[in-house]
């Protein structure tokens, strides 16, 4: 158990530290000018020293990410389910979804600004746009691969379609569902930043970075990039945590405690 925690937490942290070390070595070793690449320490200081300015911007990016992600995940799930259940919808909607993903998001942003104006809405739309697709595709795939014998068994017992869906099909699809959610999580912040670039009039993390760039403040450009990356990683880890929490059977041989939910009835 200890060993596993060490392996699962320690090793990723170590590999990130290694990235910083390599960065440091390159910058120092090759005498890279500081206006091209700062040392890791300078990049980090550029963030901490401006923290009171940055923090509201970070919160703004997180807000866009969360709204867009939650809407996108929900939309993606519902679309996946509807497409899996109704063949004609799948035939009609699948091409549209594919086309939607072929549109370069960066080119989409100005269009959204024209339609939706500035503010948070176009950013949320972009995040949603990016997030729903892997969720839909994976849910569709997962629901399509539920063991037909298991579904037949449910039928033999006289299960309704709804109960079969809730009790069998959804839990049987958790692995692909979380694959989609994790892919979406890692791209969500990218979507939010693209939105900020194209549709910000006032303050945003992306504009802060642009501003630093035009001021030749290279350390802050790198620092802001690190902050954006960290938001993405944090969001990804949150989803991983949710997966671990909601799928105990994938790691344990014995249930930790009585596990009762919704239709299961019973309190506690």
């Amino acid at each position: 158990m200890r060993r596993r925690v060490l392996l699962n937490v320690g090793v990723p942290i170590l590999s990130l530290v290694l990235v910083l070390v390599v960065w440091q070595l390159i910058v120092v070793g090759f005498h890279v000018a500081s206006y091209i690449a700062p040392r890791p320490r300078e990049a980090i200081t550029s963030v901490t020293s401006q923290w009171s300015t940055l923090w509201p911007l970070i919160l703004g990016t997180i807000r866009e990410t969360i709204y867009g992600y939650v809407i996108g995940a929900a939309l993606g799930f519902v679309l996946g389910v509807v497409m899996a259940k109704i063949a004609i919808v799948q035939r009609l909607v699948y091409p549209v979804i594919l086309v939607s993903q072929a549109v370069p998001v960066i080119a989409l942003a100005p269009v959204l600004v024209i339609i939706l104006g500035f503010g948070i809405v176009p950013k949320i739309v972009i995040v949603t746009w990016i997030v729903f697709f892997p969720v839909t595709v994976n849910v569709l795939d997962g629901l399509g691969h539920v063991d037909p014998d298991l579904k037949n068994l449910a039928r033999v017992y006289g299960a309704s379609r709804w109960r079969t869906f809730v009790q069998i099909e959804v839990p049987a699809s958790t692995t692909p569902l979380f694959s989609g959610l994790k892919i979406g999580a890692i791209y969500a912040v990218t979507g939010a930043i693209i939105g900020e670039l194209a549709a910000s009039e006032g303050n945003s993390l992306a504009l802060y970075q642009e501003h630093a760039n035009s001021n030749l403040n290279t350390a802050a450009v790198y620092g802001t990039t690190m902050v954006m990356t960290l938001i993405g990683i944090a969001w990804f880890l949150l989803v991983v945590g949710l997966e671990i929490w909601s799928t105990p059977w994938q790691r344990r041989t014995v249930a930790r405690r009585r596990w009762r939910r919704g239709s299961d009835g019973g309190a506690g």
Binding site: D147, D149, L150, R155, V156, T247
Partner: peptide
């Protein structure tokens, strides 16, 4: 459906 018990070679236990 809903009138008999039914069991196959595959146990069809749900892992979750």
């Amino acid at each position: 459906t809903g009138h008999v018990g039914y069991m196959l070679q595959k146990d069809l236990l749900v892992p979750w």
